[in-house]
Design a protein around this nucleic acid. Structure first.
Lengths: 199, 199, 199, 199
DNA sequence: TATGAATGAGATTTCATTCAT
DNA sequence: CATGAATGAAATCTCATTCAT
């Protein structure tokens, strides 16, 4: 029973945050979304904070999986291929629109004042940077690689942020295109490109 | 008296958000920061929402002024110069560290569910994009210019976001460098560059 | 559980109004009278207004029942009998003294500025008038009947009002006697009387 | 200055009660009606309670004057004439509609829990009863006179109450007619009548 | 005399949590 | 395992009153 309930409640949490935001996502609203009573949340997660932490962890795991799956599927071990997979994974992000996106952004803001969330946040940020940095390092000198990794990480997060905030639906295709193209520019003096067409 | 108190309370709001985050920034805490009683907030701003809106408006105005001042100070009317000024202004952002940064991020998350903040947010986003787009348009074909503007806007926001979230102090110099360099890459087939040295 | 709590809280509301008046009847005082916590009031009635409305509705229902019961118990279908039953019912008024009386008067004053209460008030007023009017109409010409109904309705309310305001306990017997006697005078040219003795 | 301000503030109090009821008649609203600052109320009346008491006293004085003036103007010293003047005075009541009426009713309810107002209320009630009783006593045996006074007092208050509560404007003419006619019925075995026509 | 800035107490309401069933 | 009744703390807002100017 437990894993089912936990997943139900995590999904309900994202639905509630999507609906009214983290500040108004009360335990009762979450419970209503999950079709259970409010009391059960304390039972399974020890309290609201526990549920929020579990939800953030879930989102981060989804992202991590999305990237890892694409990298595992690569037939080509080139830096470009890996970086491309990272970009794809970040804009898959399980469900780049709706509940997940708003929950993600809410946690970003919240994490600045909650050590538990902050740690999760930090680990995730570093992983993105470290992965990119490692791949760039295979083609660029150290300083260049570091800057490239910082720039591409910022680009990915920025595209994602602006996409989440914009009233229109997230245009993941456009985001992927801009990110890939930025990558190409960073590696412009090297052979192949990620973007087939420069429309 | 009123303008003094309003400014005091807006500053106190940012201080409180910096300290504990938007969710825990109660009017009593804000009042304590300002050294006044809690009741006065409703008196001057009609309620907490009024204060938050005024605070966000204040931050946006600061940003707008920072950009406008730099553009007015230009001796060179070239697109590169204007874009450079926009970048500088966004990373001045009055006080890119501490209170203002956290407040900004908190509003980003909050704006998704509060129409009043959302409108402010939207206007600001569009302005950054429109300004960049206009300058790029002077050097690039339409589609290219649009993508360049989208990319640079995302880069700016992404650098800012990662800077605000990182536990270390915001490295505005590095952010400016990466943004300027991205700009140079976008305009690579044109004459002058923004970045003097490509360290 | 719900119906029990609701009744408890309605009773407690009347007790609190009896004790300190509507203006000072805070939800904490009401809750203390009911022996529950203050928060539960919002839970069951949605807020203080909901509780007050429910309380007024309860009082009106009690009055309505008191009249209806007496009229159902009549063996005699004459207008005099019905009017007598209406008078009796109005001075039974469940509990013509103490809590109910003060609550009633408080609502009278309050209803002038709260549309919800006003509607309840209005329906009740019209019913008393309509019932009396109908019965008088069986014995008197139209204009006469209307005036008689207006007069007797005013007399009933006036006796009740003065009884509630007087520091002494409400003398329901005297009130009934005066009302019945007024009725006899209105029907003086017709056969039977309601008042056995004209002391 | 003082008498002017006091009168201004008493008028403003009635206007505020007319507008939103006693419960919502805040000092600031009253002050706004009077076109002065809120602080001045405490200065002239010692506080809100003082202002309310002064206002009630003012209304009672107006009523008292209205009755006294009519009785002084009588050329006929008969009981019927005096009773008629009392009825007229009570339905003049300075301004039987609007502010005064609502203020009056608000004080009725409030007086049950405020000793100061209660005393004023009590004195006023007794005076109406005593005056009527004295006049009836000149024509009727003691018991009869007492009941007649009680009945007419109740009738007057009841007509007034229903008039104040009804959504339509107070029909003072109809009220006077019903009261005079009731008086005639009480004195039916004596010569002259108060009501010219028995429509 | 009059203002209006400011306070602090109090009222309502919301909500996470606990607990008996 | 699950519910929902109930609490108590906290948050916002209102308002009468005070006081310096």
């Amino acid at each position: 029973m437990e894993p089912i309930r936990r997943q139900q409640l995590i999904d309900a949490t994202m639905a509630a945050i999507d609906e009214v935001g983290l500040g108004e996502a009360t335990i009762m609203r979450i419970a209503r979304h999950a079709g259970v009573s409010a009391g059960i949340i304390s039972h399974y997660f020890g309290g609201k904070d526990g549920l929020l932490e579990a939800t953030m962890r879930h989102i981060l795991t989804d992202l991590s999986n999305a990237v890892a799956a694409r990298r595992r599927a690569l037939t080509d071990d080139s830096p470009r291929a890996h970086i491309g997979a990272i970009i794809e994974g970040n804009f898959d992000r399980s469900q780049v629109t709706g509940p997940a996106a708003k929950t993600w952004l809410a946690f970003w803001a919240s994490s600045m004042h909650k050590p538990t969330l902050q740690r999760l946040q930090y680990v995730n940020d570093r992983r993105l940077y470290a992965n990119l940095s490692y791949q760039f390092r295979r083609l660029l000198p150290c300083d260049e690689a570091r800057n490239a990794a910082r720039g591409l990480a910022a680009m990915i997060d920025g595209l994602w942020l602006r996409g989440a905030l914009a009233p229109e639906a997230f245009d993941a295709e456009a985001a992927r295109y801009l990110a890939r193209r930025y990558c190409d520019q960073l590696l412009v003096h090297h052979d192949h490109t990620l973007t087939a067409t420069h429309t």
